[in-house]
Design a protein around this nucleic acid. Structure first.
Length: 686
RNA sequence: GACCCUGUAGCUCAACGGAUAGAGCGCCUGCCUUCUAAGCAGGAUGUUGGGGGUUCAAGUCCCCCCAGGGUCGCCA
């Protein structure tokens, strides 16, 4: 609701500027330091002062007197040296926020309208299918999934893709492990792969293979041979690779399902190869001159792409790569042509295509620009009935939705791949797809590392130098890392112990359900509360915490609110939850309880609860899920304070009690919505 | 060497160029016959790495240093 009133104020301010013919001064609004000063403020008068040659205070006065009445705004006041403060009509805001919260589907579109909506493709997770997922992968999936939820809440049509690199070095290494260290036949591997925790077995095997190579470098030839066989797609090694990667993908889907993450389609690299996606992309790139054959220098014999020094377009790229404008205007046009040494190799001199090349083809396909498509088959159906599809070469199954053809593409990939993502975008631009290049977003985030103490706890011996560092990098190759399912198991058992202590009498299944919700709440909140640029130095103590700024804290606030409603029903108060939700007839009394001064604390809570829409909008435009996490925590915190100050059901004044109940109801609903956006479920009890 | 990210309380992190820089953890002290204490209240710690500049206003923008991390491969 806050966003709606704020938008009206901004429109009125824009109108004020327009009347004076001012176009180049932005309308700036902010939150005043306290609700006593209002809910929206503008410092615009300061900026206008030199322009209009009058004192800020005087201009502020003009703004205040000239603005027409704004619905939802009760008063306009001046403050300080020139701030204009807008004070909301508190009762009207509360009533509107209350009814808005009662219609959670209000912002979601009808299916038919949604089908016409331009599509966003969000690619996330993308774990190499050769071993168990670790905490770093969890951060990727939690960020991606939450961003998907935010987009959907904003009414966007979203397709979730999880790219499977099933023909890469990492899979090849595990194949080497099974053939040369384990001596497994395809049949033996098949039964092994069907066993639980096959991904854990591969985790260890992968580390063993790394060591196997280190002991004797000539063994690396095995990797090369295996890789070639897998890419070719025939023979025993290709069969093993297929068994491994499919089984591991199923493990990953199960792991992610534990934390509520689902996918729509799993595009596989093997199909990108076998369906000749690269040939189609290569043809376009060559015809448009985006790549050329290097004739001299270290890259001789390779097809390479030169990256422009500066984005050629009118600065569109600055949206995706802020703070990039390195060169001052008038920088010299680069000396082209001389050397291809600094160009990016796309096709190797032996004719094979690099990872980036395949990624360009994939990105083109996402936008529907490649002129080719996969065939699809069903891979897995979730308990809620949703089906995730995967790609296939031969005909495929009928009934697949239309995948790809995106208007916007978000690639959730850690910051270390920023350069490669830039190359992919440059590729689109070089092909003349300016629009799509501008709509290709690298949703970048920093990695999860281990605190040195954590690494030591896990039995990893650190060099002295590493011990001094703030964190230690996770390494799948070395087998150093916290496996996702291990962490989830630990979280669930810790949560379970707490639940058992509090609800010894509850049925087993219910206790398990609650413990699961708490574990996921703790984990997802932990992964989402950091902004994307923060490196998470993982530590079990922080991750396993259920107190303070955590998911369970937020969940607990919801449970408290619901306990009030349950007790209310038990006490058979004069109205039911339905009547509580129908607040229309009691609006007159809201004003008394929210009035300035004594009602400020209640108003602050109501305002915060009614600000969810603004927080979601900010999180979406900043592509920063942490904003929603922060909001949920602050709302929970404000509610706990309120809960402590007001004993609602014993409130003697009936009208006030009813109001406090409605305020609690508003908070509960908004908090549930915010948590849902984070992928966190609020259990009935805790 | 070039480019990117980071530097804020003891620790981990927040803070659209705006009014008094905030949370959590940890530490100390209180509060459970109550709508369950996974909670609440109180206690204090800041030269926002350093130095210049722009601005009515800088933790935030620009420049120069310092420190840490990352990327720049015919790996993915």
């Amino acid at each position: 609701m806050y966003r709606i009133v704020e938008a009206r104020i901004r429109a009125a301010l824009r109108e004020f500027l327009n009347r004076r013919g001012i176009q180049d001064i932005p309308v700036v609004t902010q939150r005043p330091p306290s609700v006593a000063m209002g809910e929206v403020a503008t410092p615009m008068a300061f900026e206008l002062a030199p322009r209009l040659r009058r004192a800020p205070r005087q201009i502020a006065q003009e703004i205040a007197t000239e603005l027409a009445a704004i619905p939802g705004v009760a008063r306009v006041e001046l403050a300080g040296a020139g701030y204009v403060n807008f004070l909301f009509d508190r009762a009207a805001f509360f009533a509107a926020a209350f009814s808005e919260a009662a219609n959670p589907g209000g912002t979601l579109r009808a299916d038919r309208a949604l089908a016409r909506e331009p599509k966003c493709v969000v690619e996330h997770t993308n774990i190499n299918p050769n071993k168990a997922a670790h905490i770093g992968h969890l951060r990727n999936a939690a960020l991606g999934d939450t961003f998907v939820r935010l987009l959907r809440r904003a009414g966007r049509r979203v397709e979730v893709q999880n790219y499977i690199d099933n023909t890469g070095v990492q899979v090849a290494d595990v194949v080497v492990g099974f053939t040369h260290l384990e001596n497994k036949s395809a049949a033996e591997l098949r039964s092994l792969a069907a066993a639980p925790r096959f991904d854990f077995f591969c985790w260890d095997l992968y580390a063993r293979v790394t060591q196997f190579f280190e002991e004797d470098q000539t063994r690396l030839a095995l990797r090369g041979q295996t890789l070639a066989a897998i890419e070719e797609g025939h023979g025993a090694e290709a069969e093993l690779a297929e068994i491994i990667s499919v089984a591991i993908v199923r493990c990953h889907l199960r792991t992610m399902e534990r934390l509520g993450v689902q996918y729509d389609v799993l595009p596989r690299e093997s199909e990108i190869l076998h369906l000749k996606f690269w040939d189609a992309a290569f043809q376009q790139l060559r015809e448009r001159g985006a790549i050329h054959l290097a004739s001299a220098g270290k890259n001789v014999g390779c097809w390479v792409m030169k990256l422009p020094e500066r984005p050629p377009g009118p600065g569109q790229e600055t949206q995706q790569f802020p703070k990039l404008q390195s060169n001052p205007p008038g920088a010299e046009p680069q000396e082209t042509g001389d050397s291809d040494d600094d160009a990016k190799v796309i096709v190797r001199s032996n004719g094979t295509v690099t990872y980036v090349g395949k990624d360009i083809a994939y990105q083109l396909w996402k936008f529907g620009l490649l002129g080719r498509d996969f065939a699809y088959r069903r891979f897995y159906t979730y308990p809620n009935g949703h089906t995730v599809w995967t790609t296939t070469t031969d005909g495929g199954e009928s009934g697949a939705p239309e995948f790809g053809h995106a208007a916007d593409v978000y690639n959730v990939i850690d910051t270390r791949q920023a350069y490669l993502q830039k190359v992919v975008v440059a590729g689109l631009r070089a092909l003349g797809f300016e629009q799509e290049a501008a709509r290709s977003v690298h949703f970048s985030y920093d990695v999860v590392a281990l605190s040195p103490r954590c690494a030591a706890e896990m039995g990893y011996t650190l060099a002295e130098e590493e011990m001094r560092k703030p964190y230690v990098e996770v390494s799948g190759r070395k087998g150093l890392g916290v496996k996702a399912d291990d962490l989830l198991d630990e979280l669930e058992s810790a949560a379970r112990a707490e639940v058992d202590a509090r609800h010894a009498g509850a049925p087993e299944a219910e206790r398990a359900r609650i413990a699961h919700a708490i574990a996921i709440g703790a984990l997802r909140y932990f992964l989402l509360k950091y902004t994307r640029t923060a490196i998470i130095a993982f530590d079990f103590r922080d991750a396993l915490s259920f107190e303070g700024e955590t998911g369970p804290y937020c969940q607990y606030a919801v449970v408290r609110a619901r306990n009030i409603f349950r007790k209310m029903a038990e006490q058979r108060l004069h109205f039911s939850l339905e009547q509580l939700d129908d607040a229309a007839e009691d609006q007159a009394s809201f004003k008394d309880f929210l009035k300035s001064g004594e009602g400020d604390d209640l108003w602050e809570l109501a305002l915060r609860a009614g600000s969810l829409d603004a927080q979601v909008a900010t999180a979406l435009s900043a592509q920063e899920p942490a904003f929603v996490a922060k909001y949920a925590f602050e709302l929970a915190q404000a509610f706990n304070l309120f809960y402590h100050h007001h004993h609602i059901l014993s409130e003697a004044h009936a009208a006030k009690r009813d109001f406090l109940l409605r305020l609690s109801r508003l908070v509960e609903r908004q908090l549930v919505t915010a948590l849902d956006l984070l992928g966190i479920e609020a259990p009935e009890k805790m």
